[in-house]
Lab assay of single mutants.
Amino acid sequence: MTDQQAEARSYLSEEMIAEFKAAFDMFDADGGGDISVKELGTVMRMLGQTPTKEELDAIIEEVDEDGSGTIDFEEFLVMMVRQ
């Protein structure tokens, strides 16, 4: 866990972390443990947004600390705390 990830967790109660985990699992449609650009786009479109591929890439790049091209749960928490 990076310093950013530990800091993000410090702002959240266990209840909030559990709620974010449920949301993360909804995004992680294939159950792979991370959110891909495609999965992020699908959920955002379900919520009425129309992000471009470039916008989706930028969202993932902003929090993808390990350079995997996807968002894992710890990175997702950082993203949610920043919102």
Rank of each mutant, 00 (worst) to 15 (best):
M1G: 09
M1W: 09
T2G: 14
D3Q: 11
D3N: 15
Q4F: 05
Q5P: 15
Q5D: 13
Q5G: 10
Q5K: 11
A6L: 09
A6Y: 07
A6C: 06
E7L: 07
E7G: 13
E7C: 09
A8D: 09
A8R: 08
A8F: 02
S10V: 05
Y11V: 13
Y11S: 12
L12Q: 02
L12H: 14
S13R: 04
E15W: 04
E15G: 06
E15R: 09
M16D: 07
M16A: 13
M16K: 12
I17A: 06
I17Y: 07
I17N: 03
A18S: 08
E19P: 00
F20S: 06
F20V: 08
K21M: 02
K21L: 02
A22R: 14
A22H: 15
A22K: 15
A23D: 00
A23L: 04
F24W: 15
D25K: 11
M26I: 01
M26A: 14
M26C: 11
F27L: 13
F27Y: 09
F27D: 00
D28H: 06
D28Q: 06
D28E: 05
D28W: 01
A29Y: 15
D30Q: 10
D30R: 11
G31R: 09
G31F: 05
G32D: 08
G32V: 07
G33Q: 04
G33M: 02
D34Y: 03
D34T: 12
D34M: 03
D34P: 02
S36G: 10
V37G: 04
V37S: 06
V37Q: 03
V37T: 14
K38P: 05
K38R: 10
E39K: 05
E39T: 06
E39S: 12
E39A: 09
E39Q: 12
E39G: 04
E39P: 00
L40M: 14
G41Y: 07
G41C: 05
G41F: 05
T42F: 03
T42S: 10
V43N: 00
V43D: 00
V43I: 14
M44T: 01
M44K: 01
R45D: 13
R45C: 07
R45M: 05
R45Y: 03
M46F: 07
M46S: 14
L47C: 15
L47G: 03
L47T: 04
L47V: 11
G48P: 00
Q49C: 10
Q49I: 08
Q49D: 11
P51M: 07
P51Y: 12
P51W: 07
P51R: 13
T52I: 07
T52Y: 03
K53L: 07
K53R: 12
K53I: 10
K53P: 14
K53V: 08
E54N: 05
E54K: 05
E54H: 05
E55V: 10
E55T: 05
E55P: 01
L56V: 12
L56Y: 04
L56Q: 06
D57L: 07
D57H: 08
D57T: 10
A58Y: 05
I59A: 05
I59Q: 05
I60D: 03
E61H: 08
E61L: 10
E61V: 05
E62F: 08
E62S: 13
V63G: 07
V63E: 03
D64Y: 14
D64S: 14
D64A: 04
E65Y: 01
D66R: 08
G67V: 08
G67A: 12
G67T: 08
G67L: 11
S68K: 14
S68D: 11
G69V: 02
G69Y: 03
G69T: 14
I71H: 00
I71E: 00
F73N: 00
F73V: 01
E75G: 11
L77R: 04
V78F: 09
M79R: 08
M79L: 14
M79P: 05
M79A: 14
V81I: 03
Q83Y: 05
Q83K: 15
